[in-house]
Nucleic acid binder design. Structure first.
Length: 419
DNA sequence: TCATGTTTAACTGCAA
DNA sequence: TTGCAGTTAAACATGA
């Protein structure tokens, strides 16, 4: 078992020992795993969109921030037991990169060939779950889906019609009118409280499978950028404007200003081992894990624990953090297919240590929105400094260096969040 | 003009 | 076989 898998298992065991109520939806009427959406309650969105097993050789940053290829026995992501037991259809003729792998190994986040086995209603629920607020705009639903499922990023946009159709037709979804003083187009959508129980107990079935798999990549809208920066490859040209941070990473605008203006997401795959066993070097300072973990404030590390079933989704609790917080780093190119992969990285709400005043001297600011490279720590951009999160626009920093989070998975060593 | 939202219709696959 | 759920396509209206 790989180190990450071992850590994850240890963490899961410890967590379940402490929170037996989270031992899941195994009883009652929730055991119909195909039709139950009870798992949505405890869903950590990033787990769905990250591979259980890399479909292509993973690339990681080593202790010196040098990109290297991950060993073939790359660790699975954490807590996959919370995923619904769906069985994506993979048909003969599917020459996707997942060819030769089990359906479980399909990485829907990067695999453009296989349609995710989730119904549109489920996708909408996921997107709604992923937003910090209890309402979401249509465009944010689009963006969330395209951000988390490569298939929809590249395929014909007719699926958006189906999303709208679902929102309008499905009584489980409710439109929330935009206030007159609120700028923007269209209204908001949320899960109808009257149907909340139905949603949680499973009203949506798995999507039909007949047209789930297409024989060739649906590259109708795919366009490589003119430059060769891998971090921008795969972005839809003009479709949306992610904020390019000064370190070459993208701040995710999928949860747009209507939903979560403080959210920065880092998309793509992510090697937990390389992250969890390292200190973080920022601006020449090494940040210890314990300096980041703050029991009074949410952090990505807290978010790696499964949500308590007692979490109130209306509060900013772990539930929100699960959906908000991803740590991911995808690196350049899939060696098997040469497909460009998303290089952006996710993370939210790491509070900077006290000494961090935002005045770190660094000359690597790239004001031309060009990639500075993943390995180049850069200071905050003055004009975009909101001072809200270490990973946000204000501080365009990536995890560069080492941080040891071995103890992270011993939850006894972590203060329980006050929910 | 385009995004958003509604509605209708045809189709497929699954389960009873 | 039939009904239902889900998908897809299309037409149309509305508003920014």
């Amino acid at each position: 078992m790989s180190p990450s898998a071992s850590l994850a298992r240890r963490f899961q065991q410890n967590w379940l020992a402490k929170h037996p109520q989270d031992s899941c939806h195994t009883g009652g009427n929730l055991d119909d795993s195909l039709t139950s959406l009870g798992w949505l309650q405890n869903l950590k969105v990033s787990e769905i969109t990250q591979p259980r097993q890399a479909s292509s050789p993973g690339l990681v940053l080593d202790n010196r921030n040098i990109i290297k290829q991950e060993p073939p026995d790359s660790p699975p992501p954490l807590m996959t037991s919370q995923l619904p037991k769906l069985e994506p259809r993979v048909q003969i003729g599917d020459m996707a990169p997942c060819c030769g792998t089990s359906p479980d190994a399909i990485d829907y986040k990067t695999n453009p060939y296989v349609k995710p086995p989730y119904s549109y209603a489920t996708l909408i629920c996921m997107a709604m779950k992923a937003t910090k607020k209890n309402k979401i705009t249509l465009s944010s639903i689009y963006n969330w889906i395209t951000d988390n499922f490569m298939y929809y990023r590249l395929t014909d946009p007719s699926w958006q019609n189906s999303i709208r159709h679902n929102l309008s037709l499905n009584k489980c979804f409710e439109k929330v009118a935009r206030r007159k003083d609120e700028p923007g187009k269209g209204g908001f959508w949320r899960i109808n409280p009257d149907y909340g129980d139905m949603v949680e107990n499973g009203v949506f079935k798995k999507r039909r499978g007949s047209r789930d798999v297409i024989p060739s990549p649906p590259l109708k809208r795919f366009k490589l950028e003119d430059d060769d920066f891998p971090c921008v490859s795969g972005m839809k040209s003009g479709a949306r404007e992610d904020k390019l941070l000064s370190n070459g990473l993208y701040a995710d605008s999928s949860l747009d200003d209507d939903d979560d203006e403080n959210s920065l997401t880092l998309r793509g795959d992510f090697n937990w081992t390389s992250i969890l066993n390292q200190d973080i070097d920022i601006g020449g300072r090494t940040i210890k894990t314990e300096d980041i973990l703050d029991e009074t404030e949410p952090s990505p590390f807290m978010a790696m624990s499964p949500p308590s079933s007692e979490t109130n989704s209306d509060d900013l609790g772990l539930d929100d953090l699960f959906s908000q917080t991803d740590f991911a780093m995808d690196l350049s190119v899939d060696f098997q297919t040469n497909d460009p992969l998303d290089l952006t990285v996710q993370g939210t709400t790491i509070r900077p240590p006290e000494w961090w005043s935002g005045d770190v001297v660094n000359n690597n600011v790239d004001t031309n929105n060009n990639c500075s490279g993943l390995n180049t720590p850069v200071p905050p951009s003055p004009e975009s400094d909101r001072g809200d999160t270490m990973w946000g626009d204000s501080l365009g920093l990536g995890p560069t260096g080492n941080f040891d989070l071995e103890n992270l998975f011993d939850i006894d060593n972590i203060p329980s969040p006050q929910l």
